[in-house]
Design a protein around this nucleic acid. Structure first.
Lengths: 159, 159
DNA sequence: ATGTATGCAAACCATTTGCAATGAC
DNA sequence: GTCATTGCAAATGGTTTGCATACAT
């Protein structure tokens, strides 16, 4: 859960974006934005849909996809695609500063790390491009799966 | 196209992997590996399938998926998922050292940059994790789309 | 001879699309 | 009143799965 000041700020940002683009300010759009900013960490369309149901605000999946598109476009939400078969993951863009992800290629677990491996200054070096956000994906094997791999190999060797 | 030494090396690596895991050494598997190492830059399943057809080596899509899975597992191929609706992209892991991608959120164009923004040393700091590879995705708006955005906004303002 | 790998077709499932009903402007 | 937005249902398309056939061991 993010503080009240940020919640107010993102709502105002969204209003400005909608007004400028001549998009309508519907209750669904604000409810979705506010709900997303009550979620800590990652979410996907399914968990967002269910989580909003629980909070007694029913929106169709179409509207979720529709609104997320706007929120991505104005930079209030960030999208991640960790695997092909898996659903896209999202997270709020503010009040959530760590963007480095450590992904286990065996079990698919996604761990986040707080120590950013890259500095903002380095991103400014990129020419002819306006950076809105970045994602660092580090693929490898977590300690649990690393152990499972060793066991499997040992079994094969013994055969 | 990668040099002969690397081609030989990856073939040997693959043989070692298949032997150790008690997988069979089929002509399809070696043909796919060799073909992938003849491709510069990104490819997807469809382009790989067609490209192999042109080279007169017919393999089923199932076998491509099957084999790519093995090549990912032994670290000879790297996988990227830039968007949800789009097909997964792949590239060979050796003879292809740049892993930083600059992706335009508007047109989806993927640009590669040779100057790695991160040092190998920093990756070693991660604990309880064996890093096999990493990908840096930088999202934003390319100069072409940036111009299109400004034009669109100007049109809306005039209305 | 045995059982893994291949190839085809069908299934899967997150996401997108088409369209009638709703509601913001 | 107009037309963008919502919500439902159907379509899409990359990927996965099931199963008969082929072939590496």
């Amino acid at each position: 859960m993010v503080n009240e000041k940020i919640r107010k700020q993102v709502k105002d940002d969204f209003t400005e974006y909608l007004t400028l683009r001549k998009h309508r300010k519907t209750s669904e759009r604000y409810a979705i934005l506010d709900h997303i900013y009550s979620i800590d960490g990652h979410f996907n369309m399914d968990s967002l849909y269910n989580s909003m149901l629980e909070a007694c605000f029913r929106v169709s999946r179409s509207t979720l996809y529709n609104t997320i598109e706007l929120l991505l476009d104005c930079g209030l939400v960030v999208k991640h695609q960790f695997g092909a078969g898996t659903a896209a993951q999202y997270e709020r863009a503010y009040g959530n500063e760590n963007h480095d992800h450590i992904i286990c290629v065996d079990c698919g677990e996604v761990r986040e790390t707080s120590n950013n491996l890259i500095s903002e200054d380095q991103l400014k070096k990129i020419r002819k491009f306006t950076v809105s956000y970045y994602s660092m994906y580090i693929y490898g094997v977590c300690s649990k799966c690393s152990y499972a791999r060793r066991m499997k190999l040992n079994r094969l060797r013994r055969k």
